[in-house]
Nucleic acid binder design. Structure first.
Lengths: 173, 173
DNA sequence: ATCCCTGCAAAGGGTTTGCAGACGC
DNA sequence: GCGTCTGCAAACCCTTTGCAGGGAT
């Protein structure tokens, strides 16, 4: 029985927990606990949606926090390494990120018209993963499944557009 | 029962067929049938693996065909539109393409160490697709499923590397 | 005090664009 | 001949890198 949508509904802020996880990670790797790194982590966990590196950068710029692009990218990479965020490439050469602690593993359906992203879970993915790992002798670390299509409201828009064009054609004949 | 690997085993060249499909597409869209477009299509269908735009470009350059980067990218986009090739982004900001006519729909497992790509089919993906389409009211056009992990031989390499490091550690103490 | 991390700006790499000339139609 | 497509090169965009100064340990 697949579950779908509403994957990230838990609203409580896991901020303290993820900070601890991050601290442990930094210690283990003997990396420094800088203000910037925690500021970025905090901002990410305040957000609810997918975001881009640039949007974080410009956010801090506007707030006069003065965190450089280099630091943003550096920290994002660290957070991916310690599994506190996930990095996506929904087509396009533009990475999108999302927080991942406390959220169920899930996949994405993307509307090619309005770019809306809907999340869903289906346990069958896990089954496929472990079966393929066995069959092909791979140690699978992670996966990405993106389904692309047209969402309900954009389907309607397309229909309206089509009708409009056909009416125009009739009028010009 | 999932099928796996050896997806692109049909060796006959579908070149004439795909040219016809491409012609029909160009006609329907009122686009021009240029030598460059057919040359690119032909070269793609002679290849057997995933390739990048740049590799096509430099191939033609070496052969003194003088096809520009712009034309390569333009044609690749057309071929994606008429479904004769598929475009992938296996992480990285670098698109990879593969011919798709006459080949079973399939997904990919990528070795994060040696970048080897293995293809596999699992009919359950189709089921998930149509179920999600129904549930979320999406018209799904396509999907990409990439599994990342370490292949058998790279697992061995990693183990050897690990043993080597531990031996070194013992020696220095 | 060390030296990792930061900010800044410039370089990098794949992709896209603008323009003048070429060529399908 | 018209209008699209091409080749060329520069622009573009996201990301990475190099370097000098600053802050964590």
């Amino acid at each position: 029985m697949p579950l779908f949508s509403g994957v990230n509904t838990t609203r409580e802020e896991h901020i303290e927990e993820v900070k601890n996880i991050f601290s442990a990670y930094l210690e283990r790797k003997q990396l420094r606990k800088t203000t910037e790194r925690y500021t970025i982590l905090e901002e990410i966990y305040k957000r609810d949606d997918h975001f881009e590196a640039e949007s974080l950068f410009s956010f801090f710029k506007k707030k006069k926090f003065n965190i450089s692009r280099a630091t943003v990218y550096n920290t994002l990479e660290l957070l991916v390494s310690c599994d506190l965020i996930k990095k996506h490439q929904f087509g396009k050469n533009l990475a999108q990120y999302e927080k991942s602690y406390g959220y169920k593993q899930h996949d994405h359906i993307i509307c090619v018209d309005c770019k809306k992203v809907v999340e869903f879970c289906d346990p069958r993915i896990q089954n496929i993963k472990s079966m393929m790992a066995d069959l092909l002798n791979f140690k699978i670390t992670h996966h990405t499944l993106y389904m692309y299509g047209v969402c309900g409201s954009c389907q309607k828009k397309r229909e309206i557009e089509l009708t409009k064009k056909e009416t125009e054609k009739l009028l010009t004949v």
